[in-house]
Amino acid sequence: MRYFYYPGCSMSSSALEYDVSTKAVLGELGAEVVEVEDWTCCGASTAETVSFLLSLVLPARNLALAERMDGDGDFLVGCSACYTNHCKVGEHVKRDPRLLDKINAALSIEHLTYTGKVRVRHLLDVLANDFGPEAIAARVKRSLSALSVAPYYGCQIVRPYGLCDDSEYPTTMDEVLAATGAEVFPYAMKVKCCGGVLMTTKKDVALRLVGGLLQAAKGADCIVTVCPLCQMNLEAYQGDVSRYMGEDLHIPVLYLPQLLGLAFDLPREKLKLERNMASPRPVLDKLA
């Protein structure tokens, strides 16, 4: 299977470990991953505060670049915010076809055309549906049965479009995790918000939201995420959150492909666990 891969800004810098482990796991599963040439930022949740049209043109530019590439393939995204933004273009054009002309009028300045022929897919969707739990189980060299893992989906992978799972009670990641032999921790907060950008603009509010997420994961060995912003909010502020909530809430947080990489016994340099800000040591000790 072939994918036009859009890493996005975070996965090219602070979340490089997500990028590297994603490519390693997909490679192990036999996928062909080709990076979209000359991609630019999707606008995050920010472009629409400047201009609605710009919030569609920025992701449409990347999709147009993928349409221009050789061969067939889906547009693969690892970051949930990038995923929603790229899905948003097609959804809005469906609702109001006149937008297509406007988007293309803007893109003409870069000699690009967007038609909507490339399908946007999230990494989790690809793992669960293109490969599936059986193919994943077949690659497991080291069972994760010693671990209880809390699957954190976050918001934008299931909302607003919910293209690959239920928006209230998703289960695809649970199935992928179960394929590694891990026990799936019953995680009531799996689709509750981590606060997103509020961690920077309104820190107190975000600390409380993350506090709730970490409290509900107590008893699990680690939390698993599929978005760089969720990962950052869950792992980088655990000291602040613990003080704010008045209890110790430290817990390892891994990206899904990092955990799959442990199960596939991939080389450590392909998982880059040393970059995780909440120490993954307890997880590694349990697997030793």
Binding site: C9, T46, T49, V50, K202
Partner: peptide, 21 residues
């Protein structure tokens, strides 16, 4: 703080295409 956050972000996107965090 919110307005400055959004403005700083879009300035960086416009200038470099990608965001250096």
């Amino acid at each position: 703080e919110s307005i400055n956050f959004y403005r700083a972000f879009m300035d960086v996107v416009r200038r470099y295409g990608r965001v250096d965090e």
